[in-house]
Nucleic acid binder design. Structure first.
Lengths: 205, 205, 205, 205
DNA sequence: GATGAATGAGTATTCATTCAT
DNA sequence: GATGAATGAATACTCATTCAT
């Protein structure tokens, strides 16, 4: 009992400033990334957040809700950023390069979320998966529009359908958590640079 | 009792010819791919295979063993195929193209295994994950050797490190199960063709 | 559902006043004594206590924990009592007689615990067995000190080492559950009287 | 699989001379004593004996049969030996001393059997327990007859009922496995000497 | 807002035993 | 005599969720 009190006190000290709801999502994301969605119990989450189960169920309707929230926030953020790039100025090639770099950098900046995303999506109930996939489709289509612009103006060849190009590139980015190690020799920006080179090189007319 | 006999008969009809051990692995792979490792109970597996739990534990020490076996068989098969391509004749570019196509085709031919692979590896105990990753590393290094050959003889540019090229391409292939639908408009061979074009295009000196 | 309600009502009637945690330990002790540790399932325990499994695991980490608790409580109680006798007044012979009677009486007053103790200790994990044996050793040594006092002042002969005397006597007491039947012709106090006579008679100089 | 073959070969080499049936009982006794009856699986037994399950069920009808056999052999042996002592020559005191020493020595010479006996009897089905207890009662009564002879001729006092004396002494002997360590400072004969002194000292008129 | 005791349905795994060969 | 594949019932334990306070 002494231990619990100490933990609670410690957790409270460490993150009491941050509101409980946000803290819960943050620690849940970290735990899901480390141990998987199924490997993380609600008890693990509330212990790490320094609150009790009742508190969690006050803010989130279920464990699934937490997972959904991780997805939703990541997707919203990335879609917003892509939107700005798509609508920005510059040639299609310049804007595609910017988008290709940005998706890598923003993914590596939120690596835990990415890892959770591609590991645990299938654990959500069917309707939630459908919702997520629809959001994801919007992102895919915006990216594809950039590729098609470049094909239309002759910057890129048209040997490979734009849909496949986008699947190919976003797949590579999605799996990035499988090999990238923060603190390793490469920065997120460098990886973005290299990845975008490989994409654009493969599209040159 | 009538029900059981019917089930047994059904199972017999479906796959009694195939030995029990192999049948268990096959149905487990399918179920893991559909519902995830955690979403599949041992009961689900033995029901689908038409045997009892005891039979499964006679052949496999644990549910983990089944998962490991999926990985091991897929990796062994792909490594063997890559080996033959690497040691074959032809220019580095020809052999890299062959390898790039082969990894796509053999992945799509074993789509269930691929899906399981990249979704459930993290559910295995640490030591097994390490074993798998070591096997995977061998595959990666063989692939990288091909890229480096082409860089050495000037066929490919050297702007992007070979390691990153291989991570990039294999990541894209690994995620292929996230969008490819068997029976859709594209055949595995066509996808292999497109993917290899994107890879080799991005490498041209 | 009717059945369950009746059971719950029955349990409530029998012991709802007593807190759940204590009730669980009490019924577990009784069942372990009757059917052995291995012969008692967790389901048996929670059914008898009128709660569900989850409740038991809320209070005790495992079935082993329940068993350990039986041991720990019995040992603590007996060690406390012996302590008071050892430190009390009177000749060594008087105090040894008091201790010899007390260990019999307190064992027969907690016969279920005794039976469990000497039947199921070996089912605990090694580290717990070691902990129990250390507690038991303290008891043994206190008892031995009494015997040695009497040997030092010439009341008892020294033909048999004090260690063996204590092993001999405590062994006899430990096995008492193998033949004593509560409600039979002898009271615990009478058995204590006879046993102490046999011990002290065998020690007279 | 290589491991199993090696084990089998090793077991075969070690004990092939001894007939299978006897070997099974011997290894079962050792394992029951080390790990308890419930902690020993039939697979453990047949592995240690270097045979297969089918072989065990050829010789013994069940795992219970093995346990019963341990009890039966030990009891038969000890009863036979006690019989000879009871019917022998000498004063009651001399014969009681001989019996008191013999039960210790023969118990320590078959320490595994003793340990199994007092730990696992309660795991047998009720009817088998009853049978064993009847055999045990015969032994008890023979021992008691010796005590009563000494009481009748005035050698022993009659303050403590003979029944209790015998329970007391045999209990102490039964628990001997709880502290005696073969290879320790004391030989079985020495322990028998000390225990018999404590018994006879406590009985002197 | 928050607690934590309690639920109940679920999980992987074990194991004595049987039986066709 | 002996094998080992297969059974089926039992076991300890987990966990997301609820609800009286």
């Amino acid at each position: 009992m002494a231990v619990r009190q100490k933990e609670s006190a410690g957790a409270a000290r460490a993150g009491a400033a941050r509101p409980v709801k946000e803290r819960l999502l943050r620690v849940a994301t970290r735990l899901f990334a480390r141990n998987g969605f199924e490997g993380t119990s609600v008890q693990d989450i509330v212990d790490a957040a320094g609150v009790t189960k009742g508190a969690m169920y006050h803010y989130y309707g279920s464990k699934d809700d937490l997972l959904y929230e991780v997805y939703h926030q990541l997707l919203t953020m990335q879609t917003t950023r892509l939107n700005e790039i798509v609508k920005g100025s510059g040639t299609p090639e310049e804007r595609l390069r910017a988008a290709a770099i940005d998706v890598v950098v923003s993914s590596l900046d939120n690596l835990d979320d990415m890892i959770v995303f591609f590991r645990s999506l299938h654990m959500l109930p069917e309707d939630r998966q459908t919702a997520i996939r629809a959001e994801r489709r919007v992102y895919h289509d915006q990216f594809k529009a950039l590729v098609e612009e470049g094909m239309a103006d002759g910057t890129f060849h048209t040997e490979v359908p734009a849909d496949i190009v986008v699947h190919f590139y976003l797949s590579a980015v999605n799996q990035i958590g499988a090999w990238f190690r923060p603190g390793g020799p490469l920065t997120p920006a460098q990886v973005g640079e290299e990845y975008s080179k490989l994409l654009l090189g493969g599209l040159q007319a």
